[in-house]
Design a protein around this nucleic acid. Sequence first.
DNA 1: CTCTCGTCTTGACAGCGTCAAGATAGAAGA
DNA 2: TCTTCTATCTTGACGCTGTCAAGACGAGAG
Lengths: 210, 210
Amino acid sequence: MARKTEAAGYHHGDLRRALLDAAELVLAERGVAGFTLRECARRAGVSHAAPAHHFGDVTGLLTALAALGFATLTASMREAREGIEDPRERLRAIGRGYVTFAQRYPERFRLVFNWHRLNHDDPALHEAGEAAFAELESAIRLAAGAGDAPLEGELLAELVHAWSVVHGFAHLLLAGQLDHAIPDQGEAHIVALLERVVSRIEPSRRDPTA
Amino acid sequence: MARKTEAAGYHHGDLRRALLDAAELVLAERGVAGFTLRECARRAGVSHAAPAHHFGDVTGLLTALAALGFATLTASMREAREGIEDPRERLRAIGRGYVTFAQRYPERFRLVFNWHRLNHDDPALHEAGEAAFAELESAIRLAAGAGDAPLEGELLAELVHAWSVVHGFAHLLLAGQLDHAIPDQGEAHIVALLERVVSRIEPSRRDPTA
DNA sequence: CTCTCGTCTTGACAGCGTCAAGATAGAAGA
DNA sequence: TCTTCTATCTTGACGCTGTCAAGACGAGAG
């Protein structure tokens, strides 16, 4: 509805965009496992073989989708840290944004970090992943007061620790594993728990330049 | 080869076991995404519809496999903590065992924490997951000196933090995301990094009974 | 007006999960 | 010993999937 041009002719006009939109829906509804090229084509109103001309195969479409997913993740982290000046609080805000993304778009989160069914040589995917990583890295550097020191030793450990914490929390949450620990799965409980967990990220506890 | 009975008759004898063995191989080779019932049946030397009589559908077989995977994870954590008395070192050893499992059996790890394609109402799966969780919980309680206090507040946060750290590290490692941070992916570098990250798990830093 | 080329369709193929129906063989009962 | 029963496994079919080859279409260039 109200798309740019609802041209139903032989040539679609912006099929690539339409397929990505459809794929987004299919992914959200059916997950990575239930994702189907033909269903995407159906929703975009084209034949089953049309997607091949724009994305090659199913891996190509999922990879393009994953690149967009990374962009959304980056945006979620940026939005969360907006306006926060204190370096350590800023870092934790980014962590919250990371988990928020996973909660809001669970299937996108799963797709983006899915080893299979993704073309890891794709430049767009790689670049989008780098951008998300850079968001984390710069926050860590700021919080640790590391400037542009080489990313190694305790500084690297601090980064990987922070990343692991939020990544693991998000994954456990989506996998329903926190049910083991939290009987009451209310949103408020989750937020409170995340707050306590994120508070364990304390970059300047040690000398990051060691 | 040298299976119990190599009976090639109409009745297999221990087809359930044979299918699980075959499925283990298929999973390791092709991953969860490339897993197929028919390939399992082929390797077990039976018809394509035979697995249905023992596992219902593909979800049933994967769920049975996941239960076994949880058992392996539990064993890996137990083996890692064996003989270690110091509570905090014991907890970190369990974390190392967790990551070791993921490195040794990447597809099992992915399967076990896969929300889709698994029957979460299955009692065997639930029990096996509970056992793995109990390993972590008891170690946390010991390290925090919490006795049998209710699992909430800072104690709960400590548990979820420790779990998130190792779970996130394992996932990032398997997803190849640590390539962003570590150019040299040598095994020694990974181990050293994991050691530094795991050392961030410090249960008695605060009052766990708060 | 014609040609060309990128875009999309049609049709086919093998592989997949699942279901229904039938074949088999070991065990249980006469 | 012979029969019957029942769990186990096979066969065949269905619609779905991804992918490929060939052809139809249409817009823009010459």
